[in-house]
Design a binder for these strands. Structure first.
Lengths: 210, 210
DNA sequence: ACACGTCGGGACGCAACCGTACCGTCGTTG
DNA sequence: CAACGACGGTACGGTTGCGTCCCGACGTGT
């Protein structure tokens, strides 16, 4: 048996990181320009100035490639400082979201992948996880703190609260595609605070009459 | 010159409406399943049980086809009865939106086309018009009535108000893809009313200091 | 009853992309 | 210093869709 032990890959026989990142960048750009549906490996390789084989060596398929990108980007958790009040925290979050969605990259790729997720189970799962993480983070941090401070009732429905917080900004920037001036943020934040106070009435209890 | 006068098309020489609507239906289904990016005329014709030529005779290209569909669907204006209060009107609107977005057709096609609009000027324009109509209708009807009733300040920023109203439902159903129970609507509605009252403080006046 | 003219359907050439197989290159390891 | 082994690039067959052309079918108006 010559199955002794295979020497570890070395020399030129190792993936070149520069090429990998060139491909990653190309994918993002291509994703923004044509979307997942029309994304082609050929175009990615062309744009990255790299051979198709280089791509296939790293990812088995288009799906693999995109799933990997999603994990990478979605991994980062948002750092939200504690300003001492729900209103302040909210303003920060809105600014962060608005800032992110102002970039063409985000405002094009995110809606596209979300739409694709509606019909691709693999992407849906990956994205759902990332989205849930995000929402839970917002819920835990913003709402959690507010509850601790006594600004909101402990009964506050996290999911409904997150909808009220995130929905308006996303709609404005990603759907309506109208700019959200930084000057508008405080007003929107205070409006949301008012909404959350009312939503504090707790979860709906229609079928909990036992 | 034999350019006397051309007889109007007659007999079998006229578009058959049944086929036209079969194509329309096929486009909607195809759009829901694979999205605009991967929509192919061939698949549409196949699904409609019709020849490709039948499609090309009616629409010059894939873009034409979809633009036409958008106009047709977006044309209908939403009938919102006047319940006598902002809260009541809001509940109706939320129910209507939730009902619409519960259908797979809407919840898949709308986000897909919106994403596509981000990179296709033609679709963007058509969709923007439809969206603006929708938002203005919501603004005019809901907010307008509330202002007349004295429930909201006349200074209320329509755009911001619409964001607060429509954002949460859309986020919940089209992005987060979690069901919105009818029982939750009243609570969400009252939360939004609270938000609108605060937003009533009027448009941001930072640069209007003349 | 006839002729008109457009209809639907199938076939064609063209272009893009997929995924794979092969080939010469190159740097590390023994 | 020599050989190993995975690298990047080119070339290939197969598939799919686009847009067009030609054909026989068909129903109305003269």
């Amino acid at each position: 048996m010559t199955t002794e032990k295979r020497r570890a890959p070395a020399g030129a026989a190792v993936l070149r990181g520069e090429i990998t990142s060139a491909i990653r960048a190309a994918v993002m750009q291509e994703l923004a320009e044509v979307g997942y549906g029309r994304l082609s490996i050929e175009a990615v390789a062309r744009r990255a100035g790299v051979s198709k084989t280089a791509v296939y060596r790293r990812w088995r398929s288009k799906l693999d490639l995109v799933l990997d990108m999603v994990s990478a980007v979605a991994g980062r958790n948002l750092p939200l400082l504690d300003t001492g009040s729900l209103l302040g925290d909210l303003e920060i979050l809105l600014h962060v979201m608005a800032r992110a969605l102002r970039h063409r990259m985000a405002s094009q790729i995110i809606p596209d992948l979300l739409a694709e997720a509606a019909r691709n189970p693999q992407i849906a799962e990956k994205l759902q996880v990332a989205l849930d993480d995000y929402q839970q983070a917002v819920g835990r941090i913003l709402i959690g703190r507010a509850v601790e401070r006594g600004e909101l009732s402990p009964d506050t429905d996290r999911r409904a609260a997150v909808d009220l917080i995130v929905g308006p900004v996303y709609w404005r920037m990603a759907i309506s595609r109208a700019p959200l001036e930084p000057a508008e943020v405080p007003r929107m934040a205070s409006a949301i605070v008012a909404a959350l106070r009312v939503a504090c009435l707790g979860p709906v209890r229609d079928e909990v009459e036992v």
